[in-house]
Amino acid sequence: MRIYRRPNHFLQNVQVVAVGSSYLVQSAAYKMQASRARLFKEYKEVQREKSADPDIQLVCDDSNIFKWTALIKGPSETPYEAGVFQLAFSVPEQYPLQPPQVRFLTKIFHPNVHFKTGEICLDILKNAWSPAWTLQSVCRAIIALMAHPEPDSPLNCDSGNLLRSGDIRGFQSMARMYTNLAAMPKKG
């Protein structure tokens, strides 16, 4: 496996977690360890299941296990179809008790994504987060959100208003245009 070729960053600290008796001494350090250990498990799972979810390609930063990026495929039969969207994950030290911060790096026209910042309005990334979610399942939830926008709590009001006023065609053509402009994988 690829991970064994990179022995000198986040992997080396993982074993410490199992000891467990002296963590009161360094509680903050323990929190870091717990989140690292968890992320390491997710990392292994992602490596193992690479082919299981062809729509999601989740990659951990080479030098920092708290930074991840993902490439997700726009769901079919939506204006995002055929687009590839990049997400940036920033994982807090308190993970998995606290949710990762996720935003779109690729421009997207969607009621629940901030048009400028790429911030995502999704309950599981806010108050409905639980450690039962993983970075991988968050990606799946974001793909589901792309297919099922919630125009009643819009971050992108223009997009939300089109849907709320019933102008499905207007919404789809705008979303399609931005997919074509920003999310089409470059050939070659």
Binding site: A34, A37, R38, K41, E42, E45, P96, P131, A132, W133, T134
Partner: peptide, 10 residues
């Protein structure tokens, strides 16, 4: 259907 690593630490 929960993934074991999501709850085993707890």
């Amino acid at each position: 259907g929960y993934t074991e690593f999501t709850f085993e630490d707890f």
